[in-house]
């Protein structure tokens, strides 16, 4: 009985997961709601991956969308060339039915390439900190986006499409809301894994770097390696969110990964409070829903949201949750939640 109570939180996440999937497969929730849920999932991955660097390690990376772009393009090009008839390779390189199995692998490869792109920021971070590093991240974002803009192979500024066909190929095998399934799975895994990372003595090394880098180095923490791990981990997860995003929308263009997208990630992380993973998740959900609710206002949406945020910061200058997690506010929650 105790065991059930302690794991109640995890169970309820699992039950919610299954309910959404079943409802989606049965067609009870329509495609629009499904898309919103998927956007929430993508944003959870995007925001919580940035919170590794900006929240826990205390750096100010503002070019996170660049890594999202890398992941999006790599996994899109892979999945389109592998599983569908396309302009680049003509016939699909693999039988389209394999996409059911290989789809997550393709997304992961996008993440791995994005993690390697993360080196562009990680290596300068050995020598630089603070605002100077922030500038480097902005420059990297610009570089990645303009690079894609100039790559005619993937459509340049016109963008790249065909990912919907991959989803159809998967649905041809067995009808099932695959993309919804994978977005939710990756989102849950991401949060889970980041939580594990920052609660281990190993991962807490990055919190030590935030609080006092000199002390971290003298207390035997290899700060350069930890920075490398944090940046690559963070950009790799951003790449995964990008790959999923591309497949949800079915179309990517370099413009969707501009500084504005990076700003969205910053908004979600700082709205949550620096160093609160639960906060990042909550603000990713709130932010996505807010975006959808304000859709009728069209462009005014992007006046209202910043205004709301400025107001929020006037009242809670440390963000919604500061550096605390949910159970710190509601100690009773601890009863239903045991973390290993």
């Amino acid at each position: 009985m105790d065991k059930i109570r302690q794991n109640l939180f995890i169970y309820s996440v699992g039950v919610l997961f299954i309910i959404i999937l079943v409802l989606a497969a049965a067609g009870v929730i329509d495609l629009y709601i499904q898309t919103v849920i998927m956007f929430i999932g993508v944003n959870i991955i995007f925001a919580s991956s940035l919170s590794i660097v900006n929240g826990y390690m205390g750096e100010f990376s503002c070019g996170h969308a660049g890594f999202m772009a890398v992941g999006a393009y790599v996994s899109s090009v892979l999945s389109v060339t592998l599983f569908t008839a396309n302009k680049l390779t003509g016939a699909p390189l693999l039988p389209p039915s394999l996409s059911v199995v290989l789809f997550p692998v393709v997304i992961l490869i996008g993440g791995i390439v994005a993690a390697i792109a993360g080196l562009l920021v990680a290596v300068p971070s050995f020598k630089t900190r603070d605002d100077y590093l922030a500038i480097i991240t902005i420059a990297v974002n610009f570089i990645i986006v303009t690079l894609i803009n100039n790559m005619a192979v993937v459509g340049g500024s016109r963008g790249f499409m065909g990912m919907k066909k991959v989803l159809y190929a998967m649905k041809d095998v067995v009808p099932f809301p695959y993309i919804l399934f994978w977005v939710m799975t990756f989102a849950i895994l991401t949060v889970f894994i980041i939580r594990r990372f920052v609660s281990s003595v190993y991962g807490k090394g990055i919190i030590a770097i935030k609080q006092d880098e000199v002390a971290a180095e003298i207390m035997s923490i290899n700060t350069n390696r930890m920075k490398l791990v944090a940046f690559m981990f963070s950009s790799g997860l951003a790449g995964i969110s990008g790959g999923l995003f591309a497949h949800v929308i079915g179309y990517v263009n370099p413009g969707s990964f501009s500084i504005l997208k990076s700003t969205e990630a910053l908004v979600m992380v700082y709205m949550a409070g620096m160093g609160s993973l639960g906060g990042s998740v909550i603000s990713a959900i709130l932010f996505t829903i807010l975006l959808e609710l304000l859709r009728p206002f069209q462009i005014l949406k992007w006046v209202i949201i910043p205004l709301l945020l400025i107001l929020l910061m006037q009242f809670r200058p440390e963000g919604l949750m500061g550096d605390k997690e949910l159970p710190d506010f509601f100690p009773k929650l601890k009863k239903y939640y045991k973390f290993k």
Binding site: F60, V267, I299, L300, V303, I310, M313, P317, E318, G319
Partner: peptide
């Protein structure tokens, strides 16, 4: 107001970003 409340430096930077967004999109509207 943020400075006087002793908010973290980065929150002021985020506010600046938001002000920029308001100016751009307000103008667009």
């Amino acid at each position: 107001p943020l400075r006087e409340k002793g908010a973290h430096r980065l929150y002021v930077v985020i506010t600046a970003l938001m002000v920029g967004l308001i100016l751009e999109n307000g103008n667009l509207a």
